[in-house]
Design a protein around this nucleic acid. Structure first.
Lengths: 167, 167
DNA sequence: GAGTATTTGTTGACGCGTCATACATCATGA
DNA sequence: TCATGATGTATGACGCGTCAACAAATACTC
């Protein structure tokens, strides 16, 4: 006989699943509607915009975002086709390559950030009381810790950072 | 000037995102490893296994799982090719079609359920205290309610239900 | 009953992520 | 220096989900 979930546990699991589904889908849909970007696009642009010279090695970028190399390579290819980023050779290591934020990409993330943050507010953050927000943070960090990670993730509003030298 | 997130809010958002990413990916990976099923597979099989005669109209199934008709049609096509479900005509309405759980599908969900529940326990439920579980439920249901839904979702452990007549 | 609108379901194209594979380049050590 | 392995990246196949377009049947309306 298996160790089934109690009613309370099942209720928690369902609420969790439905919440994440709705929040993620809605925030993603609004980001796409308002800025023509997907969440992965946003994450890449946002992370690049924080880097000096708006460029990073693929591996470094993948590590920071916790993506697989393959995923990033595929995604960069698509973003490159849309002109949001470009690839550049690395002189120190001929295997390596940089991903560079283009002017189009820079404009895109600057334009997208305010609406995106607002979207996150409306569909999650502002729905919760201070206590609930704290509880969500505690729960999230506890679960993340279970997977042996500290909680480094991409910046939500990096376009807010002070102007970065574009060289 | 946009209404940026505070540090606390940003921390909550990051913890939330990372938690859902890790939990969902891990539970999905384990389900696939242990039972050769994806989460969508599980959801379909699980929901069908609750139905009388193990069959449901496509629309009805889609509604219950909150899927688009297109998504369900695509997914049923794939599952059909693997022998997990089959389609059957509907005599009352010639447009309509049933999705029927096959014996293979029934065996699959029965075999998958215990490990899947265990996986959900290990990577989420059992990590949390009773208070945290209650908080997660409250937060989840509040957010779901914001989207104008009551929280009906698929059953996690339907294979546990009392024997269903297979006709 | 004819014409129109709605419901039911399918299909194709495309973005996305994973896995397995391939391949060039670098680093190591005999 | 020359193999051997590790590293950095790219690619193809495939499952998955969305959107838009479509076909067929049923339901409404005059």
């Amino acid at each position: 006989m298996a160790n089934w979930l109690t009613d309370d546990e099942q209720r928690a699991w369902r609420a969790y699943r439905r919440m994440t589904l709705l929040v993620d889908a809605t925030v993603a849909r609004e980001l796409n509607r308002d800025a023509g970007l997907s969440m992965p696009d946003y994450q890449v642009l946002s992370t690049l915009s924080e880097a000096v010279d708006h460029r990073r090695r693929l591996t470094e970028l993948a590590l920071r975002m916790q993506w697989s190399a393959s995923r990033l390579s595929h995604h960069v290819t698509r973003m490159e086709q849309r002109g949001l980023v470009s690839r550049a050779d690395c002189s120190e290591d001929l295997r390596a390559a940089y991903v560079v934020l283009t002017d189009v990409g820079w404009d895109a993330i600057k334009a997208a950030a305010p609406d995106h943050v607002e979207s996150v507010r409306v569909h999650l953050i502002d729905l919760l009381s201070a206590e609930e927000l704290a509880a969500l943070t505690a729960i999230g960090e506890k679960v993340v810790a279970h997977f042996g990670e500290e909680c480094l993730d991409y910046p939500v509003q990096s376009a807010n950072r002070k102007p970065v030298s574009r060289s």
